[in-house]
Design a protein around this nucleic acid. Structure first.
Lengths: 336, 336
DNA sequence: TCCGAACATGTGAACGTACACATACCCGAT
DNA sequence: ATCGGGTATGTGTACGTTCACATGTTCGGA
């Protein structure tokens, strides 16, 4: 029966029990070469036996590397960001990094600055910005952040390292689809304009509508929620000067479907609706939603890849570009 | 023009510039009392001027406190866990803690152990287990984890510190609602049985059905997805020996709605459907879904509260209990 | 005027690891 | 036998902070 162990075992405890110096133990831990296999074996046995775990704080202190990545996100309760986040966490872990997350609740400048500072204080080695809002860039600039950053961008901002999901192309594809079906009066239910993604989708929509010389309906600015989509739908109804709506995400599209159905309109016979994201539920909405698929998992994965590459001194500056894909389902039909 | 600063300023740099000892700076940083206001002021000015940031690693090393909470989660892309996680992160941050997350992808024992070990290696001071699977408890036991744990439990497991959302009561309320509407043939579309939540909901359903002396249909075991709900709905159709379905979450309920509608059945006229969770979209499904609301935000908040309390030496052992609430919408109707 | 207590500040260590460098060991070629 | 060079291992130190303790400083009361 031993006495109560009050202190966690450290590298020197291991060394003593294995009959080697602490430096040898360190070498084993860091997979250094030029260690005799038998020695390594012995050390590993002692480690397993006494349940030694390297002290990350001590490591971080001496190497001045936190092995932590910061993620600045928003809307983490939504499918897209949540999925990306999940993949980022897994990818980072696989690479021996941990993740520190901040979820932006309000989008005022102050809280953004606070979040970025929080991450900086964690000594994160790199930063992933998910679904960035415009102000995030300002905050990063003002704080003169010097660590590598990857933004899951979408615009023409031309940050040196951004992972660009071509939202504009996606929005254009969605709009083009409606035009090809014969629709000439198309309304866009946009996202909040301080979101880069929302802005890009609106841009794509406007571009395509202009190219086709159609009348431009002023877009409605929403907040991504189904609730908003529902109310927007109800407000649109009295006018009936449109035959199709392109919503900036699937949730808002769902709200539209609800509002239209409730008032006796049939989708897609009377109105066509297109969403964006292709969340897993979209194909089970009624009618199944035509939408634009983004591969959130791939986005998260590439983001970590890019970031780690830059942290380890890579110099590649091209921006990765991911193309979203139009998924045609039952919520769109020919305008007759 | 100074030379390139290659090293981040430390506490001694601050001390020198402020004309005090490093210990005084430390005191300022830790809000120690008995510091002359003018001294504190001067130190703070220097800190702001040179952009000094305390080195967390050094702090953690000497205090042997990581100020990190571990979160063991699953399904983080789903609304419920994602919402809880988001709140947990915010609450922890507010308390000066950071969060280290692991998302369980597969539910095999090995990967659970790996995840727990990962968190332990981060030297987390406490552990929150979201939507736990049964095996998680075994893993925690086997690894003889000694840090405080709060599980967002739901069962009668009687862990000393669990935050119990009374899933059984929720499931009973949902089932009772259907019975009150005159339904006697009710099917339960359950979640995966290695999930404690899924098990508890099934339990509540079975209890209520037995209490009412109704015929017990064998529950279907699903995987939480709308896709599964859809296929389950299609498989149920040929039998038509039921008039109501209680799904263990809203997504599966959505799939059911899809399958039923597709085959010409009207919900709620021909079949009533109840979900669970009350995700924000549920009220915009067609028909708007009757479901059981859980306050995921509150859950996350209380979890952190409990955990921090225990970390700081609290000894309260009662389990907090949160009651979900039945939300009646259009997907349920009297059986005629 | 002096003393003691409360207050304010300073000094020496320790936390656990990795890095730079020093040393011991082994083997083959001279 | 001796030397050189690779391989294997050991020793000293630094990282930046907090803690325990030591010292200096101020102020009211005798």
């Amino acid at each position: 029966m031993e006495t109560e162990r009050v202190r966690a075992p450290n590298i020197r405890d291991v060394a003593r029990l294995a009959g080697v110096s602490y430096q040898t133990v360190s070498r084993v831990l860091n997979n250094s070469e030029s260690i005799r296999p038998s020695t390594k074996q012995r050390v590993l046995e002692v480690i397993a036996e006494i349940g030694y775990r390297p002290n990350q704080a001590a490591r971080a202190l001496v190497t001045s590397k936190s092995r932590t990545l910061g993620v600045l996100s928003a809307q983490t309760a939504h499918y897209g960001p949540a999925t990306s986040l999940q993949v980022i966490e897994a990818a980072a872990r696989a690479a021996g990094y941990m993740i520190s997350t901040t979820n932006l609740i309000s989008s005022d400048y102050e809280s953004i600055v606070e979040s970025v500072e929080y991450l900086i204080n964690q000594a994160v080695e790199g930063l992933v910005v998910i679904s960035p809002q415009v102000l995030v860039f300002d905050a990063i600039k003002e704080l003169s952040v010097t660590i590598p950053i990857v933004t899951l961008d979408s615009s023409g901002r031309k940050e040196p390292r951004s992972l660009s999901v071509d939202q504009i192309a996606g929005a254009k594809a969605a709009t083009r689809h409606l035009i090809d079906l014969g629709h000439t009066e198309i309304v866009h239910l946009a996202g909040p304009q301080d979101w880069i993604e929302a802005d890009a989708r609106m841009q794509g929509f406007l571009d395509e509508v202009n190219d086709a010389d159609l009348r431009t309906h002023p877009p409605l600015l929403g907040d991504w929620t189904a609730e908003f989509g529902y109310h927007a739908g109800r407000e649109l109804l009295p006018y009936r000067d449109f035959t199709a709506v392109f919503a900036a995400n699937d949730q808002m599209a769902l709200g539209l479907l609800h509002a239209f159905r409730e008032s006796g309109l049939d989708v897609p016979r009377d109105v066509s609706v297109v969403g964006f994201d292709d969340i897993p539920e979209a194909r089970h909405y009624w009618p199944p939603l035509t939408t634009v698929r983004q591969d959130f998992a791939q986005i998260g994965h590439r983001a970590v890849e890019l970031l780690l590459e830059e942290i380890s001194g890579g110099t590649r500056t091209e921006t990765a570009r991911i193309l979203p894909k139009l998924i045609v389902r039952g919520s769109t039909a020919f305008h007759t």
